[in-house]
Every structure is written in structure tokens, then in C-alpha cells.
Design a protein around this nucleic acid. Structure first.
Length: 603
RNA sequence: GCGGGUGUAGCUCAGUGGUUAGAGCACCGGCCUGUCACGCCGGGGGUCGCGGGUUCAAGUCCCGUCAUCCGCGCCA
């Protein structure tokens, strides 16, 4: 239908516009019909302004329902002092309508989109089914605006530095080395399949061989694995690759980009976040040693401590035997944890057991008034089921190594190295949260460097890449590739933010022989190498330049910036459980003709 | 694949094994000229996720199943 086109945005109206005749296009956010007077909170992409309609001028105001689409013509006037609403930016003025058009009416809504308090509790499934309504909420729109700004700032950062934005194919080849692929049947030869890319990794390396030298892309990636609150089957990463650079060059540009983009966006949107500082640098070994994890949350400084030596000759069999059989005993301090009840400590133990711990040993320094099994030289009263197994010297050493203070709870895990670190890193995050050690306005980025090239996969009895098979082994470790793979370090690095893996990168192999040796180490036969990765080996035979890059997750960055606990909130049309799209109802069945065309049959 | 939570009106939720399953918001009708969580009066609206079972009687108890959320495994 014809409608009067907008000349003014609702959010741009201010006292400066007083007296002006304006035409607004948008939606009825909220309608308050007082009988002799009708108020409409009128919303468009720019904001909300109150429109006043006098029923004497209009005979069918009841037709204006919540969320109907309207064109309104009216005059901007200042409200009487008593009627000003200082809670909203346009609250000192309003638009007195002289005419309006109902462009498009709206049915009753499936959820109250103008009520943020209610909306925060509405079931995700129903919100995402009607995502086009959900997104009308100004808070949702704002998240997409932040997202757009992140992308724009990233693009301009790289554009200004001579990078080319280059698109790589979405329909490509399956290389089932990592996550499960999404597959696309090939119509012309039934039985063959394309795959959607898990990342543009190979293409970007081929672009380096192609002499592009500096590439970036805002890339869609696809992984058919089960979801988490920070994982979607389809996600977006910033993909970057550079030639003739060393690791330090890449670290610098990645860090510079992050600081530039994140701090600009924090400013632009006045986000309740502190400006981001230059990144802390940790080696992989340091991260595991101090935090038990290669993705430590550095918003709080608690570190694990190692008491393996102190307890190796103690009377506590659990610890002693563990160390004797090659395990370790490490612990973490829970500030203020001494006041936890028996039940609460029991719950901590259950938490640890979920991740494979056999138990949780603890010593509490307090609380006041409790019966103490030991009082230390510096006056700490200790309460614990295990104090009796230790000598005075051993206890004093535990106190000093742990840095225990009055009111603390010290938690110990004794097991093999990987279990201890896994459990304690998770316990550390829990303690950080529970003890209120985390400043939610902080984004603490850090580098984790010097990962091992490969890890032993006990289940499959083979070496797996820590990152991916194209990662460059340290030159000085190359001779250990076959003899002692575990000792080979890689030129690769992660960026971790607030305990979440945000970016991953590496220097890449550009020598065909080294690439073949790494494939072989990973148990990929020469036939399979040729079939799956022959194009890479072949490409490296034509003067491949040294190159490397990195790839941070856009969705996760948005989640950090908006303080959402789920990645779904910052994705325009997210998938829900099982990777399904509740709006379009995908996946869906296909008709008989389509089955026939792709030459497939259901079995 | 596994563990835990949830599932009752359009939405959010309440509901000791016992009358005709309720509330707030939304919706419909009426009244209302300064509301901005408008107010007041009235009304419609239910496959209590689905299927079994126990019971005189099941929204409530049991078994199974489905959906969804969170987590584990998985995520080169």
C-alpha cells in the first residue's frame, strides 16, 4: 500500500526539533489508550518517542495494536514539566499526531517484547522461533549493532594495513581429521560429497602460496558437533594469514588489532567494560603449571601449588601412594572457604569427581570457634580430616607452600597429572566465581605460547595434533619428530580471554617434506595424504613462502562484550539443540524428486 | 552417547493423590483527557508435552518416550 514516507527518525527527535512537522515510520512499541487520549510509544530502528493521538480526530484508534507498523505525521512539542519522563532520552518531548496510516497490522504477540523484565525469562526456543520479533527489542538490535561495529572495525584495521579480504568456498572438500563435517551430496555422481569448511585453513594457506601475502576474511565455519553455550554448529571467525612473517610479527598484529577494535567498540557503545590492556604472555607449560589449563581465567590471580614433594613421605597413604606411582598432588586456595559447611564441601568434592577426581582432600583455616586439629606457628587453627596424617613440619610446609591465610580452605587433588590439572582448573574457575574474585567489567586477554605439536591419544593409540596438521614444528625440534614426538614444540599460540579460548594460530609448514613427516606422525598413510591433502603438498612444491596466521571467534568476542552467557544471543539466527533452526524448521525432509536427483536412498 | 533441570492458558508461573485446574501479563468488550508497568469493571481462553501403569480417584505417584536448557563425552 501507499504510505507517507519517513522524514525523521524517532530517536533523533529532541528539543531542537520543537515545532517541526515530522513523518515517522515504525512500530507501536506500546499503546496506552486512556479513552479521551491515546499514547503510543513509537519505535523505529533509531529509538522510541511518545506519540499522542486525540480520539476526537480519529475514529478507529483501537486498530493500533502493539507492534503494528505505522506511518505517523505530527508535530513535535515540548511536554509540560509535570508530564516529562526523564527515564527515556526523548522524554521531554512528544509528537502530537495530525494523521496516521496503519501500514500493516499485527496479531497478538507470542511474548511481551516491550517488557525486558519478562523477556529475560522467556523460553529460548519460542524466542528464536519468532526471532524476527525478538530482534525488534532495542537490546537485541543493539547487540547486532555492536556486532556490525566489531566487523567494521576489524575490516578497516586490516584494510588500512594492506590486507586483502578474500572469500573462500563454502562448498568444499571433506578432510575428516578434526570435527565431524557437514556433508553435501554431489548430484552428478552419487556417492561423492562436498563438505562445508570447518575453517578456511587450507584455502588461506593456498592464498599465501598464491602470493596474496596478506589475507583476511570474516569466515563462516561449520562443525557438526554437539553444542555448548559458547559453541554453535555454524559460527563466524576472523581469519587472517600473512607471508614472510615470524611468530612475533603475527602476535603483534593480532594483539594490536584486538586492542584497537575492542577498545573502539567499548567506547562507541559505552559498554560497561574496562579498556583492554596489552596481553599477558604465558607459555603452555606455565599455564598448565599455574592454572592447570591452557585457557586460564586471569581476571583473578589464584594459582595452583604443587605439594607432591612435601607429601611424598607423609603418613597420608592417598598422597604418598599417588606420588610413588607417578602421580602428583596439587592444590588450590579457596579464599574464605573455611566457612563452608560440611555439605558445601561435599558438593565441591562431587564437582571434582565429575571430572575424574577420586576425592577431594581439604584443610580449613577456621572458622573461629571451631575445634582445631592443629594450630600453626603463625596462629592458624586448622580443621581437617587429614591433618592427623601429617607431621608438624609437613603441615607447616603445606601452609607455607599454599599461602594459606585465616579463613581459607585449601583443596588438594592427588591423581595423575592430567586429571589433577583438569579438576583443579575447573575448581579454580568455580572458586573464582563463588569467592567473588572476578571483576565482570574486565576482559583479560593473554597469549598462551609454545604448545606441544602433538598429544598422545590413548583411546585411539595415536598422536593427535594439538592445533592442526599444518602447524610448523620448532625448527630446533624437527629431529625429534619421529624419535620423541611429545618433546616437539610448535610455533603456535592461542589467545585466551576470561578463561575462554578466543583465537588460535600458528606458523605453518611450507615445506612438502616436513608436511609429509607430520602427516605420517599423525598416522595418516601416504595414500590418504595424497588423496586428502595432495593439493597442499603439491602447492608447497612451487615456491611456497613462509607464512602463518590466526583466527579469533567473532561470536565469542561479542559474547564477552555484551556479557551474555550464551553465544546464541549475539547470533542473528541461532541454532538450538541438535543444531536445528526453530524459525525455518531446518533441517527438513526433501521431496522424492530431490532424493532421486542426488541419487540417495534412505536405509 | 551420558548426567542434571524444565515441560500446566499466547507468555511467565502457582497448584498436600480428592469439588468445575488458578494468578499476573497478553487478548476481547465496556468506562476513562496526561499516561509512560496507565487505571477500573466484565469476558473468552487448557490434549496439565506424549504414551502406558498404579489407584475408587492422577496435573500430582511409577515406567517409558519426546522436546528444550545447562553440563560431560565430543569439538584436528
Amino acid at each position: 500500500m501507499n504510505y507517507t514516507k519517513r522524514d525523521t527518525y524517532a530517536g533523533s527527535i529532541s528539543k531542537l526539533t520543537l515545532g517541526k512537522e515530522v513523518v515517522l515510520n515504525g512500530w507501536a512499541h506500546k499503546v496506552r489508550d486512556l479513552g479521551g487520549l491515546c499514547f503510543v510509544d513509537f519505535r523505529d530502528a533509531s529509538g522510541i518517542v511518545q506519540v499522542v493521538l486525540n480520539p476526537e480526530k480519529f475514529d478507529n484508534l483501537q486498530e493500533i495494536k502493539t507492534e503494528s507498523c505505522l506511518s505517523i505525521t505530527g508535530k513535535v512539542v515540548e511536554r509540560d514539566d509535570a508530564n516529562k519522563n526523564l527515564k527515556i532520552p526523548t522524554g521531554e518531548i512528544e509528537v502530537v499526531a495530525s494523521s496516521y496510516q496503519l501500514i500493516s497490522s499485527s496479531q497478538p504477540l507470542p511474548f511481551p517484547i516491550s517488557d525486558e523484565k519478562e523477556m529475560s525469562r522467556v523460553n529460548e526456543e519460542i524466542r528464536f522461533k519468532y526471532r524476527y520479533l525478538d530482534l525488534r527489542r532495542p537490546v537485541c538490535r543493539n547487540k547486532l549493532a555492536i556486532r556490525a561495529s566489531v566487523l567494521k572495525n576489524m575490516r578497516s584495521f586490516f584494510d588500512n594495513r594492506g590486507f586483502l579480504e578474500i572469500e573462500t568456498p563454502i562448498i568444499t572438500k571433506s578432510t575428516p581429521e578434526g570435527a565431524r563435517d557437514y556433508l553435501v551430496p554431489y548430484r552428478l555422481e552419487p556417492g561423492l560429497f562436498y563438505a562445508l569448511p570447518q575453517s578456511p585453513q587450507q584455502y588461506k594457506q593456498l592464498l599465501m602460496v598464491a602470493g596474496m601475502e596478506r589475507y583476511y576474511q570474516i569466515a563462516k565455519c561449520f562443525r557438526d558437533e554437539s553444542q555448548r553455550s559458547d559453541r554453535q554448529p555454524e559460527f563466524t571467525q576472523l581469519d587472517v594469514e600473512m607471508s614472510f612473517v615470524n611468530q612475533e610479527d603475527i602476535l603483534q598484529i593480532a594483539e594490536e588489532m584486538t586492542l584497537d577494535v575492542v577498545n573502539k567498540v567499548i567506547d562507541e557503545f559505552k559498554l560497561e567494560k574496562k579498556k583492554v590492556d596489552p596481553f599477558v604472555r604465558l607459555t603452555y607449560d606455565e599455564a598448565i603449571r599455574d592454572y592447570g589449563s591452557d585457557k586460564p581465567d586471569l581476571r583473578f590471580s589464584l594459582k595452583l601449588f604443587d605439594v607432591s614433594e612435601s607429601v611424598s613421605n607423609s603418613g597420608f597413604g592417598v598422597f604418598k601412594n599417588c606420588v610413588e606411582s607417578g602421580g602428583i598432588v596439587k592444590g588450590i586456595r579457596y579464599p574464605g572457604g573455611a566457612s563452608l559447611s560440611k555439605k558445601e564441601i561435599g558438593a565441591l568434592e562431587e564437582f571434582c569427581k565429575e571430572f575424574g577426581a577420586k576425592g577431594l582432600a581439604w584443610i580449613a583455616a577456621g572458622p573461629d570457634g571451631a575445634e582445631f586439629a592443629y594450630t600453626s606457628k603463625n596462629g592458624l587453627g586448622l580443621r581437617s580430616p587429614i591433618v592427623k596424617f601429617f607431621s608438624e613440619a609437613e603441615l607447616e610446609e603445606l601452609i607455607s607452600v599454599s599461602g594459606m591465610e585465616k579463613g581459607d580452605l585449601i583443596c588438594f587433588i592427588a591423581d595423575d597429572r592430567s586429571v589433577v590439572h583438569n579438576v583443579l582448573s575447573r575448581l579454580r574457575n568455580l572458586i573464582g566465581e563463588r569467592a567473588g574474585l572476578i571483576d565482570k567489567t574486565e576482559l583479560k586477554f593473554c597469549w598462551v605460547l609454545n604448545f606441544p605439536l602433538v598429544e598422545w591419544n590413548a583411546d585411539e593409540s595415536r598422536w593427535d595434533s594439538t592445533h592442526h596438521p599444518f602447524t610448523m614444528p620448532r625448527v630446533e625440534d624437527l629431529d625429534k619428530l619421529e624419535s620423541d614426538p611429545a618433546a616437539v614444540r610448535a610455533d603456535c599460540y592461542d589467545i585466551v580471554c576470561n578463561g575462554v579460548e578466543w583465537a588460535s594460530g600458528s606458523m605453518r609448514i611450507y615445506n612438502p617434506e616436513v608436511q609429509q613427516r607430520v602427516f605420517s606422525l599423525l598416522g595418516i598413510s601416504e595414500d590418504v595424504q595424497k588423496e586428502r591433502f595432495g593439493h597442499m603438498i603439491e602447492a608447497f612444491r612451487y615456491g611456497a613462502p613462509p607464512h602463518g596466521g590466526f583466527a579469533p571467534g567473532i561470536d565469542r568476542l561479542l559474547m564477552f562484550l555484551t556479557d551474555d552467557s550464551s553465544i546464541k544471543e549475539v547470533i542473528p539466527f541461532p541454532k538450538i539443540a541438535g543444531g536445528t533452526d526453530p524459525l525455518m524448521s531446518a533441517p527438513s525432509s526433501i521431496d522424492a524428486m530431490q532424493w532421486a536427483e542426488i541419487g540417495l536412498k534412505k536405509i
